[in-house]
Design a protein around this nucleic acid. Structure first.
Lengths: 106, 106
DNA sequence: ACGATATTCAACCCAAGGGTTGAGTATTGA
DNA sequence: TCAATACTCAACCCTTGGGTTGAATATCGT
């Protein structure tokens, strides 16, 4: 599954913070890194993970790399969560099933 | 942040599969574990992580532990994702800002 | 041409995390 | 009463992953 990448991307708080920042607009790597209490290299790695998830796109202009958010992959996450809730909402008969099966087992 | 727990919970594919199963209705630990190609102990650990995130609730009846999904914490995830998208949608002026600032820097 | 700036690559370190096995604890049911 | 069942706890083993430092590369501005 390609979709694994997005859950991995979102699992880290630093990466989520980067996405929040990018949701406000495109930003250069150095500017992204500035607020964090870690090396530029560390942030650079996080960005690579975000790119792998397709949530972030990079465009080079000279020595500067500009990062831009692409929120599309987030839909997969939202979709998954809604599916879970949807099935859960239709669960009442299943609970009945469960207790029926249990009675049967005894 | 307490909210960290939910991202951690969702980061693992086995745990997501467990949630999918639980969205269909409450299930005993052993039955949860059955389809997975790993020890019951491993699954037991995953369940603990899910409980820590409040996505799963456990009720004991004798030696059987029944697990039930509570999808509420998922809203935090959905909310976060929508916020990101929302800010991103209002980003056009920010992009303008970005290029203006850039011109100024040169 | 050259120092400063923007960034990545590579090698390494260590803590966290997902898996295992082996006991241990209750509860069941015969 | 006792074996089988349903689970957890504890100790351990790797692998992964987030961090570091120290280059290397490429562009910019003078």
């Amino acid at each position: 599954m390609q979709s694994e990448a997005i859950w991995t991307a979102l699992a880290d708080p630093t990466r989520r913070a980067i996405l929040e920042r990018l949701s406000r607009g495109p930003t250069r790597v150095t500017d992204i890194a500035a607020p964090f209490d870690m090396s530029l290299n560390a942030v650079s790695k996080h960005i690579k993970v975000l790119e792998a998830s397709r949530l972030v796109r990079r465009t080079r202009q000279g020595r500067e790399h500009t990062l831009e958010l692409d929120p599309k992959p987030l839909r997969e996450v939202v979709q998954w969560a809604s599916d879970i809730e949807r099935f859960w909402s239709g669960r009442l008969d299943r609970i009945e099933q469960f207790f029926t099966a249990k009675r049967k087992r005894k």
